[in-house]
Computed example of a mutant assay.
Amino acid sequence: MTEGNFVDYVKMHVASGKGGKGSTHLHREKYIAKGGPDGGDGGRGGHVILRGNSNLWTLLHLKFKRHIKAGHGGNGSKGRSTGADGEDVYIDVPLGTVIRDTETNKIILEITEDQEERIIAEGGMGGRGNWHFKSSTNQTPRYAQPGIPLEEKDITLELKVLADVGLVGFPNAGKSTLLSVVTSAKPKIADYEFTTLKPNLGIVKYRDFKTFVMADIPGIIEGAAEGKGLGHYFLRHIERNSILLFLIPADADDIEKQYQILLDELRRYNPEMLDKERIVAISKCDMLDDELKTELKVELDEKLPIPYMFISSVAQQGITELKDALWKMLN
């Protein structure tokens, strides 16, 4: 998937269908001059329904659908005939989509399961026909109920990427390179910061035909929790990952300090992120000789509070061991 095709934020206006009117028809037939009321009920207006689809990874298909309307219910007619129900409209969304009220920014609902259906705008009920209102004192009621009006609202769809492993790191830490090595994904790779502007997903093939999903999320900068850099735009994607893989380059000035800054940004954005399992991968370790690596190990054993490993995506060092560690954590 190319970067431009990854759409994770869409605003739209949805409107259900209004209910049909009940009929005020009075039965008339040869030899039956006053047959009494027989007006049918109006049909229900169509719903606007959100449906989870596990085959979708992005909101691209909704990018230009800004107005969605369901069908109106048909009016009732003679012979107690009920009007036709308005046509429901289904909006397929990827799993991990959060729907907010655009005005208040409050979360209305979330779609997390395949084929899960949730009504976002309910169709109006049809009005009752005049035959419902006949009584011993009013045998020919000449009134019926109008249909209930439609419901409309402005909503915002936000996608939070669902992945087993999320890559967390500063810009240019080597996240895209690692993803391209362990999966078939083809993320944009270059030697400047913020090469990745949208999350990239890849499926990691493991032993015995097992797989898990890895997400390369745009680089974090200090202050991201307050919206600096790409801020909240990408931090929300980390919320839905089971394991956080912190990627810190071997040539960083202070590996432990970088880890703490990244962790602090996650904590300030959402403290629940700290409940996830974490592992640190020291990337670009092909730049280190054995002596430097030994020195670094002594330092990290003392300072880093979580497991760490040395890897090199370019030299393919430690990649299998990393997959083993991730698989063990996932299971």
Results as ranks from 00 to 15, higher is better:
73 G>K: 01
68 I>R: 02
75 N>D: 14
85 D>T: 05
83 G>L: 01
90 Y>M: 08
75 N>A: 14
89 V>R: 11
88 D>F: 00
100 R>Y: 13
83 G>Q: 06
64 F>W: 06
104 T>A: 07
73 G>D: 05
59 L>D: 09
95 L>F: 04
98 V>F: 10
69 K>F: 13
80 R>C: 06
64 F>D: 11
108 I>S: 04
98 V>K: 03
107 I>F: 01
57 W>T: 15
93 V>T: 01
98 V>W: 01
100 R>D: 07
69 K>Q: 11
73 G>Y: 07
107 I>K: 03
72 H>A: 12
72 H>E: 13
66 R>M: 00
81 S>F: 11
58 T>K: 09
70 A>Y: 14
68 I>S: 05
89 V>F: 10
108 I>A: 11
100 R>P: 03
69 K>C: 09
62 L>F: 07
65 K>R: 12
77 S>H: 06
83 G>Y: 09
87 E>V: 14
79 G>P: 04
78 K>M: 08
85 D>S: 08
57 W>N: 15
81 S>K: 15
69 K>G: 04
106 K>P: 02
98 V>M: 04
95 L>V: 09
67 H>E: 15
58 T>L: 12
70 A>I: 14
69 K>Y: 14
101 D>H: 00
83 G>D: 09
95 L>S: 05
103 E>M: 01
108 I>H: 06
94 P>Q: 11
100 R>H: 11
74 G>N: 09
60 L>C: 06
72 H>K: 08
76 G>C: 02
89 V>N: 12
76 G>E: 07
82 T>V: 13
94 P>C: 06
73 G>C: 08
89 V>Y: 12
86 G>F: 02
104 T>M: 04
65 K>V: 10
98 V>S: 02
87 E>C: 04
77 S>C: 06
101 D>R: 02
87 E>S: 14
101 D>T: 00
99 I>V: 15
69 K>N: 13
94 P>S: 08
102 T>G: 01
